[in-house]
Computed example of a mutant assay.
Amino acid sequence: MNRAEKATLQLQAVSVLGVLKETRTYAELSALTGLPAGDLNRYVNGHVLPGVERARTVVGEVGRETLAAELDARIELDEEGYVDNSGIVFDQPFLDLIAPVVAESFGFERPDVVLTAATDGITLAAAIASYFDARCAYAKKSKETAVEEFIEARQRLQSGIELTYYLPASALRSDERVLVVDDLIRSGETQELLLEIAEGADARIAGVFALIAAGDEGIERARARTDAPVGALTRAD
């Protein structure tokens, strides 16, 4: 880890602690993190940065558990079991906090490109791409008028409907590392198509990540398609 990466991790830890402090006393924050209340006060108020190991603990362990709990609190399910996550995907500062947690917790190889599907996954992909200093690309169900070459992936769903995603061929290059992300993974069909697009570009898969896994089907389907890490921050059953 170089100096810039260390500083980024330390600043992200301060951001996570600041969010936690909004609803907790320093004594409660100390009990949660295992760090002295006096040190936490100095971190939150910007007087000093936490050391790298402390920062990694805050972001990768405490941050993951806390943000997962926050996700759970924001998820709403209707009577038919459909997930309403609009309170998450439209909150860019919250997604910016999730990005370092993803980087520290899931063991993904550092990507060159973060790939998602239009439209709900774009804000998450942008946050993660920014954190990794990677490009962000998203596939669409229709072709861009001015683009001549596309990578496409097509699949016939159980309902009989044919689902096709298109990505401009210039968005991915051979041997680039691609992290596939989305806000929600349910059946895994969208993630499978995104993986197919990445493979069609001869790119390497760095991992598959979703904020929310609705059941196990999608996660297991993605794991069957790639040897790279696959994970979600929380579940909605």
Rank of each mutant, 00 (worst) to 15 (best):
S170Y: 11
E217A: 15
L184Y: 02
L20V: 11
M1V: 12
R42H: 08
A27S: 13
A127V: 12
E104F: 00
F106K: 08
A129M: 01
Q92I: 15
L193S: 02
A139M: 02
D175R: 15
G188M: 05
F150L: 01
L211D: 04
A4N: 11
T226H: 06
A27M: 04
T116P: 09
Y138R: 05
E199D: 07
L20N: 05
R235S: 12
L195N: 00
V113M: 08
A206K: 12
G188F: 08
A31F: 02
R24S: 06
P93Q: 08
T190F: 08
S15A: 15
I185E: 04
P100L: 06
R24C: 09
T123C: 07
P229E: 10
N41A: 01
G51A: 10
A127W: 07
D84W: 07
E192C: 11
Q155L: 11
I122V: 15
T57V: 13
T164V: 13
E109H: 12
A103N: 11
L20T: 06
A203D: 01
E189Q: 05
F132N: 12
E217W: 05
F150D: 00
T164C: 01
A146R: 14
V14A: 06
L163F: 08
I98L: 10
A236G: 03
L193W: 04
E144D: 12
D237V: 11
A7D: 08
L67C: 06
A213Y: 03
T190Y: 04
